[in-house]
Design a protein around this nucleic acid. Structure first.
Length: 292
DNA sequence: CGCATTTCCTGGTAGC
DNA sequence: TGCTACCAGGAAATGC
């Protein structure tokens, strides 16, 4: 499908653009519907606080998103706003109205019009499906401490700069942590750092004001462009309608080790930063000299 | 608290 | 062909 470049490690990796694409497709299908049942079909998934049976008989008030989490606020028949259904696609999670041939983990049945059933397929079982009382994220520390939404007005340069100033951890790790900004994963972190010529190992706090400003813009631009193309499909990820994401063709750095840098022509390399495969241009993206 | 490391999990692939 | 070893990665758990 794409030469041999992605023959290793081609995973779903749903990040903000992929989750947002799924969310937009689910909105007309799920908003206002009553849940008949949410059932775990396979072995245990996620934290023990899953409590999926609590969703039965509640109405889906909205289909929202926080970072890479889908959040469906639920409403009881008496009008009480009580719980929310939280879904994380993990690495390989796919929601679909079509019964998957393998790796079915959760089935959600709804009252009324079609689709009557949605299936959650997840071969690697990193996904999560759970019901919690609204806003109680004790079992979801990442969600509890999540930074601002990158495509919303609350994600300002000042807020981003303050978050970066307080840590010397590598900027790539800070982007992946979800705490300085939400929704960025391995692909879009590499793309944003390539765009801004920042070496992924640069300690966050040493970035100049100009670099912070550029990175803030790049995170927004990369994510917005990917949303417009329905995300990036490397392997598993599909939209709810079964389509692939088209941002794959736009990737400049991720998955391109050995190719020429589109900007300067030097050979792109793959290194490991914070235990993650990381793609960069060794000529464009230099580590600042350390005085320490 | 921060930060680094380990764990979870499976399908695909390299190497023999 | 068939086997083993390894690798990808988000988030949670664990270690210091």
């Amino acid at each position: 499908m794409w030469g041999g470049r992605f023959t290793r490690g081609r995973s779903a990796i749903p990040e903000l653009p992929e989750v947002e694409t799924v969310r937009r497709e689910l909105v007309p299908w799920l908003t206002g519907r009553w849940i008949r049942a949410v059932e775990r079909v396979d072995t245990p998934l996620g934290p023990k606080t899953a409590d999926l049976e609590r969703a039965a008989g509640q109405r889906i008030e909205a289909v929202s998103r926080r970072g890479k989490f889908l959040i469906l606020p639920l409403q009881r028949a008496d009008g009480a706003f009580a719980d929310e259904l939280i879904i994380h696609l993990g690495m390989t999670g796919v929601i679909s109205p079509a019964l998957p041939a393998r790796h079915l983990r959760v089935r959600m049945t709804l009252d009324g019009s079609s689709p009557e059933t949605l299936y959650f397929r997840d071969s690697r079982r990193f996904g999560r499906f759970l019901v919690v009382a609204r806003g109680s994220y004790a079992s979801l520390p990442t969600l509890a401490r999540m930074g601002p939404e990158p495509l919303e007005a609350s994600f300002t340069v000042a807020v981003f700069a303050a978050a970066l100033a307080r840590t010397r951890a590598p900027i790539k790790g800070v982007l992946l942590s979800q705490r300085a900004v939400s929704g960025v994963g391995n692909i879009y972190a590499d793309e944003a750092l390539w765009r801004t010529r920042i070496h992924p190992r640069t300690p966050a706090s040493v970035l100049s004001q100009g670099k912070v400003r550029a990175l803030h813009a790049a995170v927004r631009d990369v994510l917005a462009a990917a949303v417009a193309l329905q995300g990036t499909t490397l392997y598993d990820y599909r939209t709810v309608n079964g389509e692939v994401g088209a941002y794959l063709e736009k990737l400049a750095a991720y998955g391109h080790a050995g190719d020429p840098c589109p900007r300067c022509g030097a050979e792109l390399v793959r290194i490991v930063v914070v235990q993650r495969g990381t793609h960069l241009c060794p000529r464009c993206q230099r580590l600042p000299r350390s005085d320490a």
